[in-house]
Design a protein around this nucleic acid. Structure first.
Length: 160
DNA sequence: GCCAACGTTGGC
DNA sequence: GCCAACGTTGGC
């Protein structure tokens, strides 16, 4: 019996990497994550086929804008050992990688973005992490019921 | 641009 | 192991 599918939300600043960038690239490696909790989610719990809400942070307005899917499980984030990379971290080496990444593939850009105020107003999303003040985690688990509700708000026909 | 909230670092 | 200082995130 396979473990229940998990559901996620990832944040990205659209100026750094937007849903349109993912649409263009189709597949991207989710590099640069330098937070242990977020890394642990990728390393331990994100599985191929898991669906991922794509959230634009530091945007006007901040919003869930699209859907992605995990298409490669966690492997070492080599940008951590590239001195020239913005996310270089000398703790991580090829022999002993500290940071990991997964690959995400584009599924859709939502017909309707769901803004942070909308998420806050919607009934039944009170527990959603991204709506909490001060919540900075850039990879967050999302309950299946919440995920389904957001897809509905977004006008998505995707099946969870 | 401001600043509150958070995670990390490092002195002790 | 505590905690102040610092850097970053991200809403506003």
């Amino acid at each position: 019996m396979a473990a229940a599918k998990k559901y996620w939300l990832v944040k990205s600043e659209p100026g750094a990497y937007s849903i349109d960038d993912l649409d263009r690239d189709v597949i991207t490696c989710w590099d640069g994550i330098r937070n242990y909790q977020a890394r642990n989610f990728m390393r331990d719990e994100m599985k191929v086929g898991n669906l991922v809400l794509f959230y634009h942070s530091n945007a006007e307005p901040p919003a869930v804008v699209g859907l992605a899917r995990v298409c490669e499980e966690a492997y070492p984030d080599h940008t951590a050992w590239d001195r020239k990379n913005d996310h270089f971290d000398q703790k991580s080496t090829p022999n002993n990688p500290v940071w990991m990444m997964v690959d995400l593939e584009f599924v859709e850009k939502f017909p309707k973005s769901v803004s942070l105020p909308q998420l806050r107003e919607a009934h039944g999303l009170d527990e959603l992490l991204v709506t909490r003040r001060g919540q900075r985690l850039s990879i967050q688990p999302v309950a299946k019921t919440h995920f389904q509700k957001i897809l509905t708000l977004a006008g998505s026909k995707a099946k969870v």
